[in-house]
Design a protein around this nucleic acid. Sequence first.
DNA 1: CGTGTCATGTAATCAGTTACATGATTCA
DNA 2: TGAATCATGTAACTGATTACATGACACG
Lengths: 188, 188
Amino acid sequence: MGKAKPTKYAILSLLSLEPMSGYDMKKLIDVSLVHFWSESYGQLYPTLRALESEKLVTSRRERGSGKPDRIVYTITRKGRWELKNWLRQPADIPRVRYELLLKLFVGSMLPVESNAEQIRLQRRELAHGLSKFRLYRKMVMEDGVDPMHRVYFLLTIRHGEMVARARIRWCDEALKILGEVAKESPDE
Amino acid sequence: MGKAKPTKYAILSLLSLEPMSGYDMKKLIDVSLVHFWSESYGQLYPTLRALESEKLVTSRRERGSGKPDRIVYTITRKGRWELKNWLRQPADIPRVRYELLLKLFVGSMLPVESNAEQIRLQRRELAHGLSKFRLYRKMVMEDGVDPMHRVYFLLTIRHGEMVARARIRWCDEALKILGEVAKESPDE
DNA sequence: CGTGTCATGTAATCAGTTACATGATTCA
DNA sequence: TGAATCATGTAACTGATTACATGACACG
């Protein structure tokens, strides 16, 4: 079955919230969905055209005074129908490629300290990511966000937080273990 | 900088443990590294050839009695050097595409129960994954695994477990929240 | 006066999966 | 008898990133 075409459905999903341009989508993804989604312009713009010729979205050109024109897309009835269809399929489990763990898997190639440093670096990234969730959560709460959507937005934020926290705990545990290893064999 | 070529370094990593064939690598990845890595034959075999012509690995053909011949690859000094170089670079943070969360992000398109079902499905997958970690951990402990490697193997397992547990906790929390939402508005 | 934002777009490239083909052997 | 395992390999396809181009305006 499947044949996912993720970008297509990501676009339809965003348009189900409100009409917007490709540029808007990119922004939205990069700030609010960044912990579970990503898109590039090179993928976004051509797909938008394809969706239009499939009649899943319509477009209208908005004159920008000074600024460049923007093309605002709106999802059609057919588009909503297709989106719902996809939403009902079981979500596929993404196969990840987590470089840090691969590097650690063959960690004995390098001195313990080198691996510890990798983990510290990762920890910093994760902590930084966590702080962004706090801001984003505030945004979702304050703003005039449709309470229908709010529950679901909060669920995705909560997921990001919980996984990031688990990873940070792992970093701490791993650093402790490597610290002991280093004590046992202070050579290399 | 970067220009990662992840498959290349995944192969060198595995060969740093012991000589093996492309087929062996695929097996190893699919059972022991599955929670943080994946490779397809279509990627593995051509890359192995490329690595050989780069003199990073050597190959010898092993006659199989009855079974097909296998081509066993060994990492060279140059290969180890290149691998170490890569290991020292900071690990890049993978940009994920987690379909479940995208579907949940626009969850209000469907009845609450439909979203809950998605989460239950995911929960089952995660629980199943967790049980595999227990087996894998036992393997690493019992077997004649080089204790130098063991620490690092265990670290990757521990990461898998901790993240899977966090996700399961999130599933439970999310289901509880959606349960309350359903009570408040039993319509749709 | 240079940088950044707005906004769309395309071509080159790369990385990756999928589906096939081969063919002997073992197991139910 | 049919399926699964062993083992290598390739061609077709898809999906995605990257780097570029355009051009006006606002900010400091």
